[in-house]
């Protein structure tokens, strides 16, 4: 089900915008500053923890855009890094790839995996803005997305209780920049089986089915190049041995230039892989064209 349906949907979303406006020459770039968001942990354009209904890259509906990002998260007991790329097609369709590494440091030894044991995951994502606009339309931007995730440590995540080492998330996002208040609000509903985004596999002994999770961002634009805000992401709790908590962060995103956005956040990720109180710093740098 997973792999086939993902590629079928990706092919479908690609086919939709291909027919429109092909007669006009391409004009790349031109998106308003910061309105492409940053790269979320799983690679979709948005906030740090959750996708927004915006499309990666600086293009408008007349062109193609590109973004690349690197993110590190340093919480109490763990290190996390991810890097990825995304293309935006006519500000309509986004395709992304992200690789995640999650290092368990000392906890790895306590879990019997060995010190510095690292989980990894590859994520291929597609997002289609189906209606509306972040800034201009009466209707807010509305997008549908899929994320195919493949965990690199299948045997270990199964030993932890996960049912699978791959899975597909489906999500819908609604995002709006309220210019009159300089406030951006975004909400996402996600269907997922993933434990800690999938880094601990998919499904578990407590639950093996899809559940609906809710995610949200609120940001206040203080100046042309600076926004601050907070995020929330509810999480499933499928593994008996490793409780999973909802995520929170408070962030500041700074446009260093037209092409570079730096984000720093304080994140509370709760309990991860049996150890609670995982709070720390999120740092991300995005280049977009």
């Amino acid at each position: 089900m997973t792999r086939f349906s993902f590629f079928a949907l990706a092919a479908l979303t690609l086919a939709l915008p291909a027919g429109q406006a092909m007669a006009k020459p391409l004009r790349n770039g031109g998106k308003l500053l910061l309105t492409n968001g940053i790269s979320s942990l799983e690679g979709a354009a948005g906030g740090g923890l959750t996708p927004w209904a915006v499309i990666a890259g600086n293009e408008t509906d007349e062109g193609f855009g590109l973004s690349a990002h690197g993110t590190i998260v340093e919480v109490k007991d763990y290190d996390y890094q991810s890097a990825g790329v995304a293309i935006g097609i006519r500000d309509r369709l986004e395709l992304s790839y992200t690789h995640q590494d999650f290092n368990t440091n000392e906890i790895g030894a306590a879990l019997g995996l060995g010190k510095d044991y690292a989980f990894s995951q590859d994520i291929v994502g597609a997002k289609l803005r189906v209606a509306g606009d972040l800034v201009y339309d009466a209707l807010p931007a509305i997008a549908l997305g899929v994320q195919y995730k493949k965990n690199g440590q299948g045997d270990v995540v199964r030993a932890l209780g996960a049912r699978d080492d791959e899975g597909v998330d489906y999500y819908a996002s609604v995002s709006r920049l309220f210019l009159s208040r300089s406030i951006l609000l975004s909400a996402t509903a996600r269907l997922t089986k993933a434990n800690q985004m999938g880094l601990l596999g998919f499904g578990g002994d407590k639950n093996g089915d899809y559940g609906v999770e809710f995610e949200g961002s609120a940001a206040w634009q203080l100046s042309r190049g600076l926004a601050i805000g907070g995020e929330f992401r509810s999480k499933p709790n499928n593994l008996g041995i490793a409780r999973e908590d909802d995520w929170f962060d408070a962030f500041a995103a700074l446009s260093l230039s037209r092409h570079l956005t730096a984000t720093v956040a304080y994140a509370d990720l709760g309990s991860i892989a049996t150890v609670k109180g995982q709070r720390g710093v999120f740092l991300s740098l995005q280049a977009a064209f």
Partner: peptide
Amino acid sequence: QRKDMNRLVELLQQAMREEKIDF
């Protein structure tokens, strides 16, 4: 086109910034 509209918004922002208008 949209890119032109966005560009004019940026030029207006520059002019408003130059006039030191509250963001």
